[in-house]
C-alpha cells in the first residue's frame, strides 16, 4: 500500500520503548539483579529496586543513544531496519534527547538513592557503550564486540556494589565472566548474519578476518570463559552449588563451541551448530547467574566467608 517514506505515522510511546532495546535490557536487569542478590550484606528492598531500575534506565538510555548514532547503519541491515529511526517514526534528535534524559536521570537517582560509587560506575558504563563502543571503536576494529561486551558486563558489577559500596574481586570476576561470554555469543550470531554486516560496512570479525579466525577465536574465548567462570568457586567466593553449575554449564558451552570451531560453512549452509551455540549462550548466562544467587541464598554467607 505504501512505500518507504521519510515522514511516517506519528511516533507512539512504543517507539520510545523500542529505542531502549527491551530484549537486551531483560538480560541487563537480570544480571544486575543477580549481582545485587549475590552480594554479601543487605540492602533495603526499595533501594535495591531503585538500583536495578537505574541500571535498566541507564542501559535504555545507552541503547537509545546507540540507535541515534547508528540510524543510517541500522537502515542497511535486515535485523535492525525495523527500528523506529530507520522507519522514520520520530525525528532523529528526539532519540538523542530521550537517551540523554534517561542516562542522566539514572545516574542522578542512583547517586541520591543508593551510593556514589554505583552512580559513577553506571555513568562510566553508559559513556563506555555510547561513546567508546558505538561512536569510536565499533566502526574501526573487528575486536569491536570484545570491547562492546565490556558495556554489557557492568550490570552485575553495579548491582553488587550497590549493596557493598566498594569494589572487590568478586564483582570484578562477574564482570570478567560476561566480558568473556560476549564474543562467542555475538560471533556465533555474526556467523549466520554475516552478509548483513558486510553490506553495512561494519568490520565484524567474520567479515574482516574470515570464518576460520572467527571460529578459532570463539573457542579461545569459550576456554577462557570456562576458567573465569570457575574462578569465583576456586577463590572461595562461592560454594559448591555455583561451582558445580559453572563446571557443567561452561563445559557444555565449550562442547558446543568445538563443532563451530572446526567447521567450515559453504554457500547455503543452514548454520545449525552456530544457531545452537547462540541459543545456548543466552540460556547459559541466565542459568549461571541463577546458580550464583541460589548458591548465596542456600549456602549463605557463613559457609563461604
Amino acid at each position: 500500500m505504501e512505500s518507504v517514506q521519510t515522514l511516517s505515522s506519528p511516533s507512539e510511546w512504543r517507539d520510545y520503548y523500542a529505542l531502549t532495546k527491551p530484549r537486551v535490557m531483560s538480560l541487563v536487569v537480570f544480571t544486575g539483579l543477580c549481582g545485587l542478590l549475590a552480594a554479601p550484606g543487605h540492602i533495603n528492598p526499595v533501594l535495591g529496586f531503585t538500583a536495578v531500575l537505574c541500571i535498566a534506565l541507564g542501559a535504555g538510555g545507552a541503547g537509545a543513544l546507540n540507535q541515534w548514532w547508528e540510524a543510517d547503519l541500522d537502515a542497511r541491515m535486515k535485523r535492525t531496519a525495523k527500528r523506529p529511526l530507520p522507519l522514520g517514526r520520530m525525528p532523529r534528535a528526539n532519540a538523542r534527547d530521550f537517551g540523554v534524559a534517561l542516562s542522566v536521570a539514572s545516574v542522578l537517582i542512583m547517586d541520591v538513592a543508593v551510593n556514589t560509587i554505583s552512580a559513577v560506575i553506571l555513568a562510566i558504563s553508559i559513556l563506555y557503550y555510547a561513546i567508546v563502543y558505538t561512536i569510536w571503536l565499533k566502526p574501526r576494529t573487528p575486536q569491536n564486540i570484545v570491547i562492546g561486551g565490556g558495556a554489557g558486563a557492568f550490570p552485575p558489577l553495579i548491582g553488587w556494589i550497590a549493596v557493598t559500596g566498594h569494589i572487590t574481586w568478586m564483582p570484578v570476576l562477574l564482570f570478567a565472566i560476561i566480558f568473556m561470554w560476549t564474543p562467542p555469543h555475538f560471533w556465533a550470531l555474526a556467523l549466520f548474519v554475516q552478509s548483513d554486516y558486510a553490506k553495512a560496512g561494519v568490520p565484524m570479525m567474520p567479515v574482516v578476518k574470515g570464518q576460520a579466525v572467527t571460529r578459532r577465536q570463539i573457542l579461545a574465548y569459550a576456554v577462557v570463559l570456562f576458567l573465569v567462570s570457575l574462578a569465583p568457586w576456586w577463590a572461595g567466593g562461592t560454594g559448591a552449588i555455583y561451582g558445580i553449575a559453572a563446571l557443567v554449564l561452561s563445559g557444555l558451552f565449550v562442547a558446543l563451541c568445538l563443532p563451530v570451531a572446526v567447521r567450515r560453512a559453504g554457500e547455503g549452509d543452514r548454520m545449525k551448530p552456530e544457531k545452537r551455540l547462540f541459543g545456548y549462550s543466552v540460556l547459559y548466562l541466565f542459568a549461571l547467574f541463577t546458580a550464583l544467587v541460589a548458591d548465596r541464598l542456600i549456602l549463605g554467607p557463613g559457609l563461604v566467608a
Binding site: 505515522s9 506519528p10 511516533s11 507512539e12 510511546w13 520510545y16
Partner: peptide
C-alpha cells in the same frame, strides 16, 4: 492517528 498517538505518549 496523530491525536491517538499523542494521547498515548501523554498517558505513558
Amino acid at each position: 492517528a496523530l491525536k491517538r498517538a499523542r494521547r498515548g505518549r501523554n498517558v505513558a
